[in-house]
Design a protein around this nucleic acid. Structure first.
Lengths: 222, 222
DNA sequence: CGGCTCCTGACAACTTTATGTCAGTAATTC
DNA sequence: GAATTACTGACATAAAGTTGTCAGGAGCCG
């Protein structure tokens, strides 16, 4: 039996909630006790929460282990968004689980901090995820592609407007999704509620960060 | 340089989007070409989407790799719930990412198919996650513990009722969360909307699956 | 076609890792 | 205190994994 197979089966075996003595495990696998101790070291080093108590034996917390996964940026985004949503659930168990998992993933992801360019989607506490999604695809594409957008927008007071904007970031806080952008009509930053955007069309026109018009400027001013 | 270090740097190097020839990589790492081919095999076997084209070279899709993670059942649940929510987003990119990720995780999780006992939370398409969460914690605990619940429930037509139920499963479809249970008042299966549950108290009374009253029976009859 | 490059198999040399044995320490339970 | 069991270090040996070399096959492109 190969070492890796033994480690795998050890994990499975430890998960039954009972206490296991190193000597029994050694006999079961036909290896020496010393080897079992070394295996436990290896498991612990891999993040499996196995706990040995002198005088009694080993037990493992009830966990499942996910193998290494290779994720596309979109999948990472979906994952983070999903967890952020669950983290707002009133169920404290779920909420705690989502938070601790988010923490684990943050620790696990490469330190390359997400750049502004990648952070096209920022997640905030929210309560009603469903509304206002309809133009998200277009808008995200525009943010990524640095393309200007032509918006047809209905203000909360039912006044209509048409404007060209430089989309910067999609956020969600409070109840709705919103889009932070530089508005070329007002010549200032504006935040648009996604559910009030009637139409959004990508213009062929590209834009670059100009001093005073970038996301960093918005945050600095915010 | 250890093999594992080389593999890690290979991954990083491949992620730059350019095409790399095996010979160049071999020279860079001071190993033979044959070793590079073997490394590519190893990476592919680990799920890293590296693609070699005869006549041109290697390139890797833009991905990040998550190391093995050890997750508690609650975290797995949070993860699956979050992805199920995102999978309903109207944004096709996000939706596709969530679905493919769900698939990956399903494939990755141990083959132990979730039992009915573990499947206390089934996820369906949904649109308004926020409402009706307030008793979820209690209810999930009761499902897990096989404990009866005392419900104070307001029907959609505003008629109040009090009943003892055997909680079986929490679902979400359409717009609200709901609880499938065996109702001891009606002596039949009933589905309750969580947002209409006024109070839910766990009774000390345990229950066991009786023929005709289990989740399997409900599904069979469904 | 010819040139490029990926790709595969086999085998021997080499390097690393895993393992058993032994000797002893430390916490826990009774 | 006695029994029990987890732990640690050292070292020789056994096992496993890694690598280079060589010989040849297979898809892609101009």
């Amino acid at each position: 039996m190969r070492r890796s197979d033994r480690l795998l089966e050890l994990m499975t075996r430890l998960r039954d909630g009972r206490i296991h003595r190193a000597e029994d495990l050694a006999a079961r696998f036909g290896v020496s006790v010393r080897t079992i101790y070394r295996d436990m070291d290896t498991l612990a080093a891999s993040g499996i929460p196995v706990e040995g108590t002198r005088g009694s034996g080993y037990r493992a917390l009830d966990t499942l282990t996910l193998p290494p996964l290779s994720l596309t940026p979109a999948e990472i985004e979906a994952l983070q968004l999903g967890l952020a949503i669950v983290a707002e659930a009133p169920d404290p168990d779920l909420k705690a689980a989502a938070l601790s998992l988010t923490e684990k993933m943050d620790a696990a992801l490469p330190s390359e901090a997400p750049t502004d360019r990648d952070a096209a989607l920022a997640v905030y506490p929210f309560s009603d995820a469903a509304r206002g999604f309809s133009h998200m695809s277009t808008i995200r594409a525009a943010i990524r592609g640095r393309q200007k957008l032509r918006l047809s927008y209905r203000r909360p007071d039912d006044v209509w407007s048409f404007r060209t904007i430089r989309p910067l970031q999609i956020d969600h806080f409070g109840r709705v999704w919103s889009l932070t952008a530089w508005c070329e009509l007002r010549n200032d930053f504006r935040v648009f509620r996604l559910d009030l955007i009637e139409s959004a069309d990508i213009l062929p026109e590209l834009f670059v960060d100009e001093p005073g018009k970038s996301l960093a400027d918005y945050r600095a001013a915010g």
